[in-house]
Design a binder for these strands. Structure first.
Length: 540
RNA sequence: GCGGGUGUAGCUCAAUGGUAGAGCGGCUGCCUUCCAAGCAGCAUGCGAGGGUUCGAUUCCCUUCACCCGCUCCA
């Protein structure tokens, strides 16, 4: 599929526009047009319905270890700055980077490592990005090349001290950058703010700095106690939230895939530590199935477990649900949702202070240079008393975190179809259509009078008004009926109802299926019942 | 952030140092009894800023955005 064609259709038909387009646009920001907002709302509402409001806490659903509760939450985008310090975002999202003017490469300042070495009175700091086990070999090879000496004379190099991070070096003039041949090609370290900074208070000073949330999850963790105390939920239970998040992506690209302002659909599921692996598996499989049910095919959707070395420092297991977006190279997949087993990292961090892993892999409070906690927690007890088991523990957390915009984009990509249908003379003609699942289609049905006379518009309008009470439907009486069908196909409307001459005789109308072009007759009075039936097939 | 490319109507494209045209789409009317038909008419544009010039959509600079590659991807 040609991505440009989809982007063009999205703009032409009002699904997606570039933000601030009349001013030249803004990199990484996108607006949803009249049809796009319907589509995205339908995606979010399907998620909320399927995960939260439609959840049956009385029945053990397929694959779940037990029954469980689900509730929702809607938190603010701006929270106490300490939230981001304890969550780990503050440390991770405020990186210092250095650029190499020779190789044009960019490095995380603290990740560049090197050693001082002297040869014939010249002392330089040789650096590399190599892994620890290959580091010394790399450094020696680079030093030999720089001083232009043979490998057999390697013992003439005088090494001084162990390998250290570039962050400990003040004099960049004597630094040989990892991919450079000459000295002093690195810029001074510059701060990269991956979180959006803002000011709280009209007289904003530096102390009033706050951040727009980079994820909705933390609002759930900091409200854990409020929800437990107020809503009669018992572990195991989940708290769900849909909302905007903000990240300064370094390279926003690929349409809405990597936007700087985006919407998340997140669940934090709290469970007993011992049963958390089962819950992890449950959520991972259930979330994968959700995308299949809404129309992404198994061939283009994969559930990929992270390797151990890919896991975040707090995670005991993470799987990504990934879709083969057409803008990616063949065989590559892009993340739609991450399902992470986060252990008790978040609740404990917000209670005790930001945690880190010690040498044995145990979570301990991270200390600053002064020996005190680097980021102080709230000091509030976020443990849970399990009345059934008569024990107190900090629940473990499973986090299915989905991108609403990415899901919407994936459904659009998958729906985009070109086929050939017979024209009025029976010759094949190119057609563009969106084969959207009717559940998420922006318009559920269109109603047409076959021609604009003989009372057909009046009859069609009556059907339109009846349908409109329950569904987003569209009325169109202009031009040839074939053109009106084509327009609806292009925006993914699953059904078209047409009033014709027979309607006036016997009260029947035709109803047409978008994908198959099949038409059948129903009673005009049954239009609402028929569309309701089609949109709610048995078993769902 | 770097390198390369691109930027003209809603979309796809053309032409030009003397302020732009087509196809498709859109709108109005006529016609039209089932898949973008026909006829008549209408509307809409040189991404932004600056410079050179009598005059810039065209040449130059800057900027913004998009695409490709690198980097980044918490």
């Amino acid at each position: 599929m040609d991505m440009d064609k989809l982007v063009s259709l999205c703009k032409r038909r009002g699904f997606l526009f570039q933000s601030s387009e009349i001013y030249g646009g803004l990199n990484g920001f996108w607006d949803y047009g009249p049809l796009g907002v319907e589509l995205k709302r339908n995606v979010k509402e399907a998620w909320w319905r399927d995960m939260v409001s439609g959840h049956d806490e009385l029945t053990v659903s397929g694959g779940a270890p037990s029954t469980f509760d689900m509730v929702g939450l809607d938190c603010t985008i701006i929270m106490h700055p300490q939230v981001w310090k304890c969550s780990g975002h503050f440390d991770l999202f405020c990186d210092f980077m250095v650029d190499c003017t020779e190789s044009k490469k960019r490095y995380r300042h603290d990740q560049v490592r090197g050693r001082w070495v002297t040869y014939r009175e010249q002392k330089v700091f040789v650096t590399t990005m190599a892994e620890a086990d290959k580091e010394q070999g790399e450094l020696e090879a680079k030093a030999l090349k720089f001083f232009n000496i043979r490998a057999k004379d390697a013992d003439k190099l005088a090494w001084d001290g162990d390998s250290v991070s570039l962050a400990t070096i003040n004099d960049t003039k004597q630094v040989l950058a990892p991919d450079a041949k000459t000295l002093g090609t690195l810029t001074d370290p510059r701060e990269f703010n991956l979180m959006f900074k803002t000011i709280v208070g009209a007289l904003g000073t530096a102390e009033d700095a706050a951040f727009l949330r980079p994820e909705t999850a933390q609002g759930i963790f900091v409200n854990f106690k409020n929800v437990v105390d107020s809503s009669r939920v018992a572990v195991p239970f989940g708290i769900a939230q849909i909302g905007k998040s903000f990240r300064n992506e370094i390279t926003p690209r690929n349409f809405t895939f990597r936007s700087r302002e985006f919407e998340q659909m997140e669940i934090e599921f709290f469970c007993k530590p011992a049963s958390s692996p089962q819950w992890y598996k449950y959520w991972r499989d259930r979330r994968y199935q959700w995308y299949l049910d809404l129309g992404l095919p198994r061939e283009r959707l994969q559930l990929r477990d992270h390797h151990a070395d890919e896991l975040s420092h707090y995670s005991c297991g993470t799987a990504d649900i990934e879709y083969a977006f057409p803008f990616l190279p063949a065989g590559e997949f892009g993340e739609l949702e991450g399902v992470a087993h986060r252990g008790d990292f978040d609740l404990r961090s917000h209670s005790e202070g930001k945690l880190t892993k010690d040498a044995e892999g145990k979570l301990i409070v991270e200390l600053g240079p002064d020996g005190k906690p680097k980021h102080r927690g709230s000091g509030k007890d976020l443990s849970y008393f399990d009345a059934e088991a008569k024990e107190r523990y900090v629940p473990h957390v499973i986090e299915p975190s989905a991108g609403a915009d990415r899901a919407t984009l994936a459904f659009l990509c998958e729906a985009y179809t070109e086929d050939k249908v017979p024209d009025e003379n029976g010759n094949p003609r190119e057609r563009t259509l969106l084969k959207l699942n009717p559940r998420i289609a922006p318009i559920k049905a269109a109603v047409f009078p076959l021609v604009k006379k003989d009372g057909m518009p009046e009859a069609a309008q009556k059907i339109y008004r009846a349908l409109k009470k329950q569904f987003n439907v569209f009325y169109d009486e202009g031009g040839a009926v074939g053109r009106r069908y084509a327009r609806q196909d292009e925006v993914g409307t699953p059904y078209c109802i047409t009033v014709d001459g027979e309607t006036l005789q016997n009260g029947s109308v035709t109803i047409r299926d978008r994908d198959s072009l099949k038409q059948w007759r129903i009673k005009a009075d049954d239009a609402v019942a028929e569309v309701t039936k089609l949109l709610n097939p048995a078993g769902s």
